[in-house]
Amino acid sequence: MRGWPDVPRASPRAVLLALGLVAALCIALFMTLGVQGSWAFVLPFRAGKVATMLLVACAIAVSTVLFQTATGNRILTPAIMGFDSLYVLIQTCLVFFMGSAAMAAADRRLTFAGETAAMVLFSALLHWVLFSTARRSLHMLVLAGVVLGVLFRSLAAFLQRVIDPNEFAFLQDRFFASFNNPHGGLLMVSALAMLGAALLGLRAMRSWDVLALGRETAIGLGVAHRREVTRIMAIVAVLVSVSTALVGPVTFLGLLVANLAYAVMPSFRHVHVLPAAILLAVISLVGGQMLLERVFAFDTNLRVIIDFLGGLTFIALLLRGRVR
């Protein structure tokens, strides 16, 4: 088997530092490039965008890495397993049963809390079904996951066909991935939800390293596997709700940054991998948005840029054997 035993490995800290610098540079450029007119207006406006992107970057990166740890693979992401489609489905159901008028009138923070609760509940169910029946084979899990994703997407598409066009416009407005109109109240609630998830997670960081060794080994080493996986699933549900509520589904970003993080990070520990994934997500989002605004003058959308550049990077990594 081929390997790279002779390549000297950078320390995790050096990698994090480098990523942090690039991320900071991206943010600085984004804030200052091409400012016309009053700085007092532009800076807070752009800061709002950056804050949204930071939150989304954290949510997507962390949820993907944790999900992959819990399922013991590097291909499945919450997005591929249909978690964000599930969120879209829940929202669609709400509009379907309550009507857009009621939804628009309700406090956005309140509906967000309700939707998140529904997400946690659903993902618990999903997790129970998947892990009680298909845990013996990763292939089964992947197949089931992809299928579930299609199921949620199709159900949502079905309901969206059924509701009337005005309500559909209301929904579409909520799901269009865009950082141009951050919702202040939602931002605060999301930040709080993330903080809660972080508190729930911080203490478990080290047992997650063990979890990544697989169920049997983890149990053998005394980690309460079921409890930790449940905890991760709850965190993932909250984080996916946050990112989807803020900007809508961004399918490939999680897969991309998680695998990039595994590839560039010489350590497997979550203490190192999680920050690396977050920084990579920040770089992708802020850098992509910058390209979008300055180079393409809004003539395309963020997903196109991320899919294109990210996909190419990823394939290059695959070819060099850095992703497996």
């Binding site: 590097r74 990544a212 060794l213 697989g214 080994t217 497996r324």
Partner: peptide, 14 residues
């Protein structure tokens, strides 16, 4: 008590 299973595959790179 410690145990080792028959086939051991790791997703993580250790």
């Amino acid at each position: 008590l410690s145990s080792l299973r028959q086939d051991n595959h790791l997703p993580a790179r250790l």
